[in-house]
Amino acid sequence: MADLLVVGGGVLGTFHAFHALRRGLSVTLIEKDQYPIQATVRNFGQVVPSGMAGRWFDYGWRSLEWYRFLQEHADITVRPGGTVYIASDAEEQQIIHELKGIMDGRGYPALMLTSADCLERWPSLRSSYCREGLYFPDEVSVAPERMIYRVLDYMVETFPRFTYRPLTTAVDCYPSAEGVTVVTNAGERLTAAKAVVCNGGEFKLLFPQLFAASGIVVSKLQMMRTRPMPDVALRGNILTGLTIRRYESFEECPSFAGLSVPEHLRELKEWGIHVLFKQADDHSIIIGDSHEYAGAMEADDLGFSLKTHVNELMLREAERIVSFDVRNLDRVWAGYYPQHKERDIVEEDLSGVIHIRTAIGGKGMTSAAGYAEESIAKLFA
């Protein structure tokens, strides 16, 4: 019997397991697939507390410490380079100056960059787009297709009280004399003092009525990746004017509420597009993304096909921002993640022993490590 059983091996579940292990607890983590393949590995791999608001900024800042800790002990693909937000017009410039003041008040390192500064650091930016930049030097990126597997490997090698069970699906979860019992697809009964359920949209398999009434929506994101471009230098996380108009941190700025929507951005806004770039270790560049939404019970309606029109909108906007060939693509894909219409995360506690933690939205890669630390501390106070 374990002290904690975690359902779901994505970034949220894995960091719950990690922090429980660091407290000396015995932990079993089960993952339904051969390895995690959902939202944790289908994103940009940008760790950007600068885009978060409220407690999620604090969790993101703390997460940076945990990423650096893990990188010192195992190469989990953390790469320095910082984050820059490129302002393309006077309204966006005003807002990044306001966010700079907010971050200065928090003691979070931030630098204003002139257009010339930006073009010197990132020569592939177009001078016609780049009017000014706000740079956060301490932020990092990871390789999403590898990071979580490296963390799990590190945990298996480091913590003798850790049991990792891939290809193990939870089909039932209920309070029992031992605390909680999880029944697997193989008919096993795994027991623990507590269970944390972090299996995203699959939470509907265990608690269908609760899931149906949860208010969760599913977001579908379209992303693209170029072929390797060794001649392009695009270090760090490159975020643009559309991101300034979208991310939660900017909503705290006094001028945000009065932002106009220029005509050339209207259709992009309708599809939830904000153009981001991140260069991978092999010099390929991830470009995206868009957002479509459906209610939790209608998520299948989003489908798995990609809308070429949406990709074209992103590519046209990308061509306004950078000078390299954004159409030199190697692959395109869709990612899916659950979020809540009104809450920043879904937290449900059943009988004091089953703790559902899901629908973190797009905050997982940035903030999950810090959030899970606090979550485990509360569960095992």
Score class of each variant (00 low, 15 high):
Y247V: 15
G45Y: 01
G258E: 12
A143L: 13
L111I: 03
V183N: 07
G352Y: 11
L134H: 12
V197D: 08
D282V: 07
V151G: 00
D282E: 03
E270F: 14
E251H: 02
M147G: 00
T226I: 10
A299N: 14
L268M: 13
L64I: 13
F203V: 12
E120C: 11
Q46H: 05
A2I: 08
L210H: 11
D3I: 06
R146M: 09
Y67T: 02
N311C: 04
V151D: 00
D344C: 03
M147A: 11
P160K: 13
S249A: 15
K204I: 00
R320P: 09
D33S: 15
T169E: 15
A296Q: 04
H73F: 11
Y371R: 06
Q46S: 04
T158N: 01
R126D: 03
G200R: 00
I244W: 05
S214G: 11
H274I: 01
A212R: 14
K269M: 15
L234E: 13
R165T: 07
T40A: 04
E145F: 07
I30M: 15
V326G: 09
L4N: 09
A359K: 05
A381I: 04
T191M: 12
E374F: 02
L239T: 11
H283S: 14
L4H: 08
P109G: 13
D33C: 08
E248W: 03
T191G: 00
T163Y: 03
Y371H: 12
I216Q: 09
V346A: 06
L329Q: 10
Y35A: 11
V346T: 09
I30S: 09
R266V: 15
R246W: 14
D330I: 00
S115Y: 01
D282G: 01
R146T: 10
I238Q: 09
P109Y: 12
L25P: 10
V261M: 13
P160C: 11
S88E: 09
E251L: 02
Y129W: 10
V27F: 14
T366V: 14
G60V: 09
L125W: 07
D104N: 09
N328G: 01
Y129V: 04
Q222C: 08
E132Q: 15
S214M: 09
S375P: 00
N43D: 01
L70T: 08
P228T: 04
G82N: 01
G241Y: 13
Q222A: 06
M365C: 14
V232M: 06
D289L: 10
R121C: 09
S255Q: 08
F380M: 07
C173G: 06
E65S: 13
I76W: 03
E319M: 12
